[in-house]
């Protein structure tokens, strides 16, 4: 019986090895199954998922107006101090004082892209952009001011 076992072991082993080779051979001969994305070449057609979190941006409309009220909810919501909001007092036409943002500073290098600030913002002033090529040579470039220069708050946003 030893002999029989010996040869059945050999038979089973060879069979299992050939099964494996059949699979790799299948893929070798079916080149249409290749999954590689030739990344820098397919830049033009590459589309990220619409919810992809690339970086925090503040959309402005054509009149250079944003929706940020400077309430600092996002700054509090951010777990790692990525957002710094500097506010200023603005005197309105009717003489009232109103808090406005001076600059919305966003440290992209600190951001974990956790989406908490977006969720926290009561006036939907910030969104996630689907950009992804963020590498720069100078770390300073990752500190961004999200509100455009001379931008104003949109009418009707409180």
């Amino acid at each position: 019986m030893f002999i029989k076992e010996y040869f059945s072991t050999i038979y089973r082993s060879i069979k299992s090895l050939l099964t494996g080779m059949k699979l790799t051979g299948y893929y070798f001969t079916h080149l249409n199954k290749i999954k590689t994305e030739e990344y820098p070449d397919n830049r033009a057609t590459l589309k990220m998922a619409d919810r992809f979190r690339g970086e925090v941006v503040m959309p402005h409309n054509e009149n250079n107006e944003h929706r940020c009220t400077g309430c600092q909810a996002c700054e509090i919501a951010c777990p790692n101090g990525t957002i710094k909001i500097i506010t200023k007092q603005e005197i309105l036409a009717d003489g009232k004082k109103k808090k406005r943002i001076d600059s919305f500073i966003y440290h992209h290098d600190l951001c974990t892209l956790c989406n908490l600030c977006i969720v926290a913002c009561p006036s939907d002033a910030i969104v996630m952009a689907q950009t992804f090529e963020h590498a720069v040579y100078d770390k300073k470039l990752l500190k961004k001011i999200l509100n455009n220069p001379d931008s104003k708050i949109m009418e009707g946003v409180e």
Partner: peptide
């Protein structure tokens, strides 16, 4: 991960 990316916006650290 592509499904995750579409729904959650991230592939690994979803939060």
């Amino acid at each position: 991960l592509e499904i995750m990316e579409e729904t959650c916006g991230a592939r690994l650290t979803m939060n």
